[in-house]
Write a protein that binds this DNA or RNA. Structure first.
Lengths: 211, 211
DNA sequence: TAGATTGTTAATCGATTAACAATC
DNA sequence: TAGATTGTTAATCGATTAACAATC
């Protein structure tokens, strides 16, 4: 697994998008400043935690006043690399893949899927909302040529590792894996497994406890 | 012996599905026993952690031998309430909602979506793969009558809280929220927010660091 | 100023990892 | 038996929360 030197705590990184959501909401009301107390109350966090999290992004607050909202949003976005879109390739144009391709909102989170691949001859050449489905065997070369570093895997579980290998061969260094398996990748490549199993475990266990 | 039922650590709960994945794979090779060492190696965990996690489900291993795979799978499934399917209502038949409805694999994770709701007149009455889309205003009553306790939210962010309120009114006690907002629900109701923002934060930050 | 708020250091809490006796 | 493995207690690590001086 890709081992990374981690200067920012992972929980902090995971919370930053929540701050962004809240801050955007408050900004649209015309407010200019907000404080860790308000943010914490709204999101159910601890105020100290909020201050520490935000400090990682480099923002400086003003005692008595709080944080300038617009600057704070920029600071978080910059920290997450969300001020520039990260171009990505998606592999696996099934139902889930198509839903990903057609959803517009991911640009808000720095993700810009610019091409989709599959190895099903029935799909290759077909058009989706924003382009044509390309053959999987062109992916690695294209990724190299276009300097794509982010990949999205939406193939069935039994093909996910194979696709990951191809992505790595194409120079991709960060993979959003929506297949329900954990993947092996070399050092330096980061995989994030996003599948519903863990969430359902929490929810189903909760229901079991409550009877 | 009469044990104090200690609350299960959340990280443990999140890891249990990974064990299940691995164990099912090994079971299909015909092996009867496996050990914490092997499991840990395969999944990149610590062997002690594996033993502690598994102990929470009530399984007992045999020194020198390890854990009986079939029994362990049953133990985990039972612990997660995944041996019985949890019937669920889904609200919001957009692209993502439809992908959820058409994917068959969630039954493996204890989820069984038995009805889909929307408030778009153009969608109500239309059929998806396994049924008819129902009007949202029938949802709360139906949930009560059918004793549905699990809900899936796949509406746009700005309607998610409203839908959550209706679910709670209908007696739903566990919500899988796929809209990119955090929801307020009363004590006793568990919401799991499943959106890609946190994962993308990790991946995009990784790319930024690596240049 | 007075009071709210930041930024930081210290204390607490919980999860992970290490050590090891008991087991078959 | 001998050696691998479990289950449990102790040590470590990291994140959260508390306390508080500095600030405007």
């Amino acid at each position: 697994m890709g081992q990374i030197v981690r200067e920012v705590p992972l929980p902090t990184l995971r919370r930053l998008p929540s701050y962004l959501n809240y801050l955007n909401k408050v900004l649209s009301t015309g407010q200019a400043y907000t404080s860790s107390t308000y943010i914490a109350q709204e999101l159910g966090f601890d105020p100290t935690q909020v201050r520490k999290d935000l400090a990682f992004t480099g923002i400086e607050g003003k005692p008595k006043v709080g944080y300038p909202i617009a600057a704070l949003i920029e600071s978080i976005k910059n920290f997450l690399n969300w001020d520039n879109l990260n171009d990505a390739f998606l592999v696996g144009v099934g139902k889930l893949g198509l839903a990903m391709l057609e959803y517009e909102g991911y640009t808000q989170y720095g993700l810009n899927i610019i091409a989709a691949f599959d190895n099903d001859p029935d799909k290759i050449g077909k058009n989706y909302c924003r382009g044509e489905i390309l053959p999987l065997d062109k992916m690695a070369n294209l990724a190299k040529r276009m300097h794509i570093h982010l990949g999205v895997i939406t193939v069935p579980a039994n093909h996910a590792q194979e696709v990951a290998n191809i992505m790595v061969a194409g120079g991709i260094r960060a993979i959003l894996n929506l297949a329900p398996v954990s993947l092996c990748v070399p050092e330096g490549v980061l995989v994030h497994n996003e599948n519903l199993a863990a969430g359902l475990a929490l929810l189903c266990r909760h229901l079991k406890k409550e009877g």
